[in-house]
Design a protein around this nucleic acid. Structure first.
Lengths: 84, 84
DNA sequence: TAGATATTTAGATATTTGTCTAAATATATT
DNA sequence: AATATATTTAGACAAATATCTAAATATCTA
């Protein structure tokens, strides 16, 4: 759960997962939505990957990133404890 | 939403809100559950307060902290977008 | 009012984090 | 094989963060 909170604790990374909610993208397409150099995007993707919030899939010279809703589900379950 | 994610991005602060889920407490009682000095607890409470995850209420010389589930609700709603 | 208890503020320090540039790796195309 | 495109790795640096000790503030009680 630590990695997930860490990953979500950055507005750029939250924006990335919001983009991937629409459709899977490669890192170049993601980068087009930001004023940030590619290596920084790569760094953010790495943190999201380690939290398993996104799944990379090699497609030739590209890597397609897909949102992993399973982890979101886990987070929802953690939070639901507090409701009431 | 930034302040909320920031506040939750620390295991000690998550433990604090888990404690407050059981019942409201003052900062001394909270501190008893940690190996941390009082000023550090105060710092964490401040971050949780700024995120409005906890509500302080002055009770004489104590301050009683209560969990604010409204903000948890907001967070749940933000996350639900990603489900499915 | 003096002393005790609860909490915060201030200032210091070590660690973590986000970003950059430059270079490396991997795959595709000509 | 040489060049182009996509992505990552390495290394540097400034800013943010978590913790501590010491001191300040607020309230209660004798």
């Amino acid at each position: 759960m630590n990695d997930v909170f860490r990953a979500l604790n950055d507005p750029n990374r939250r924006k990335i997962i919001e983009l991937l909610r629409e459709k899977p993208m490669n890192s170049g397409e993601i980068a087009d939505h930001f004023n940030m150099k590619k290596p920084s995007i790569s760094h953010h993707l790495d943190i999201l990957k380690r939290a398993e919030l996104i799944i990379p899939e090699k497609k030739g010279q590209y890597i397609k990133y897909t949102l992993n809703t399973t982890i979101i589900e886990d987070l929802l379950n953690w939070l639901i404890k507090f409701k009431k």
